[in-house]
Design a protein around this nucleic acid. Structure first.
Length: 431
RNA sequence: GGAGAGGUGGCCGAGUGGUCGAAGGCGCAGCACUGGAAAUGCUGUAUAGGGGCAACUCUAUCGAGGGUUCGAAUCCCUCCCUCUCCGCCA
């Protein structure tokens, strides 16, 4: 959420920054509401001060011997009642304005950071670096490299047809070595992050409306999440949601910062409006597994933290020997809560394309303001900065491993770092 | 699901209509004392919003929301949460 004071003082700055996202908004109305609300508050609190004074005086007179039902007390009562009515009227107006203001502010995305490059769409994103050598087909025997879903089905790692029976399309059932590899990847990543100093978290994956609002999924993107209608609970679309709310409404002691967490959770997304896209395989599912990293930092540390967070995600890809590149998102392609984002794209050898596997963002104080997460800075409290990054999306990691490690004898070789977790150096489809 | 108890400041805990943002204690910070520390003493120590360059000041907040009253932590209503016991259950 954007700062109300900034809205009152410099709406032009907000307008300019939002237009970098391709969002043209007229903020004059909103600014007026904000100022009007502040004026009302001033009037109201002055009246309340007067009312408090009268209340005190009644008490004093009665204690000094005045009769509670005498004329002088009755006069004060009369005044008190008048003020009470006026206050009630002002309060009502104020509440109405406040709620309008809040609702509209909750709909506005974060301001892009000064470092974020300008641009209108995905096409304007910037390749920051590439790592590793993308494997190009075909196999030595001349047969083309396969896509991960072909390999997965051939080796019996997944069962798509039966998944529809159990749930719907866009769900997957992992079997045998497929299930085992998924589990190995989760453990591998969590252990890695643990060693790097992230505290492991296993949060609830049903989250309430306040949590989704705090991290920015609500109110604007309600159609993206699955909802349990009878319970004010939603299936979390990412561990970012419970991790943000882990410290919602808290004041964190400054010496505890930065706080770093890593959580594995299943993630649930309705993927509304993506009909026909990525219909095969593990790329786009209603339910997928992900290990998420999350930082709470002092504002002055968040930029360095963003680099470190991204490096930590890259470290997972490097340990798995998967070629990737780092993309910096342009202002027009930023997610709702992000001020600045690096996407990591892994090379899918069979598809012959880079595919997003991690998104590492700093949200500056945007989520912290929604979630009221502060830290103590001397005498004052200030908003923290929050950062999140996938480390990594498990299904997409498996896809990349299958495509990257496929051999012409039909099996899939795994990187050495994964062998202790998986218990074998290759997938053969036996078991 | 049934029965009971309870939600007060960073923590413990007092407070059943009047000047209470709230006694007392703990903790924390500063100062004094000390060679240094402990102990002791003194002082200070909530959050949010508004006004002011500032000192400071106004308003709100005792789980949340509503009500009664000139005045509510205290009385009334609704809701939420926590704990204990019973039942059920991975």
């Amino acid at each position: 959420m954007l700062d109300q004071r900034l809205l009152r003082d410099d709406p032009e700055l907000i307008r300019r920054q939002l237009s970098r996202r391709g969002l043209e908004v007229d903020l004059t109305g909103l600014q007026q509401i904000a100022c009007q609300e502040r004026d009302l508050e001033e009037q109201r609190s002055a009246l309340q001060a007067e009312g408090n004074r009268i209340g005190r005086e009644v008490g004093q007179r009665i204690q000094a011997g005045a009769r509670p039902d005498g004329p002088e007390v009755a006069e004060l009562r009369e005044q008190g009642n008048r003020i009470k009515q006026q206050v009630a009227g002002l309060e009502e107006e104020e509440k109405a304005l406040e709620s309008r203001l809040r609702h509209q502010l909750l709909e506005l995305p974060n301001l892009p950071s000064a470092q974020t490059p300008d641009g209108r769409s995905e096409a304007d994103n910037v390749v920051v670096k590439t790592w590793g050598t993308p494997r190009q087909g075909p196999h030595p025997d001349g047969s083309p490299l396969q896509e991960h879903w072909q390999i997965a089905e051939r080796l019996g790692l997944v069962d798509t047809e039966r998944s529809v029976r159990i749930a719907q399309s866009r769900f997957v059932t992992l079997l045998g070595q497929g299930a085992r590899l998924e589990r190995a990847l989760i453990n591998f990543m969590l252990d890695r992050h643990n060693t790097a100093g992230y505290r492991e978290v296993m949060p609830p994956i049903l989250v309430n409306t306040a949590s989704l609002t705090a991290s920015g999924q609500l109110p604007k993107f309600a159609e993206e999440s699955f909802r349990c209608a009878e319970d004010d609970l939603w299936l979390t679309p990412t561990a970012e949601v419970p991790l943000t709310s882990l410290h919602r409404d808290e004041v964190i002691p400054a010496e505890q910062l930065p706080l770093r967490y890593a959580a594995y959770t299943p993630c649930f997304r309705r993927e509304a409006g993506s009909y026909g896209r990525d219909t095969r395989g593990l790329i786009r599912l209603h339910q997928f597994n992900k290990v998420e990293m999350y930082w709470f930092t002092r504002p002055e540390d968040s930029q360095a933290a963003h680099e470190q967070l991204t490096r930590d995600a890259e470290g997972v890809l490097e340990a798995l020997e998967l070629p990737y590149r780092r993309i910096e998102l342009c202002s027009g392609d930023l997610g709702f809560s992000a001020a600045r984002t690096y996407d990591l794209e892994v090379w899918l050898a069979g598809a012959g394309a880079y595919r997003e596997i991690s998104s590492c963002s700093t949200c500056a104080d945007f989520q912290a303001r929604r979630a009221a997460i502060r830290f103590r800075d001397g005498k004052k409290t200030r908003l923290v900065h929050t950062l999140n990054g996938s480390g990594l999306a498990i299904g997409r990691t498996m896809a990349a491993l299958l495509e990257h490690g496929q051999q012409d004898d039909g099996c899939v070789r795994l990187p050495p770092s994964l062998i202790p977790y998986f218990g074998a150096d290759r997938l053969t489809g036996a078991a």
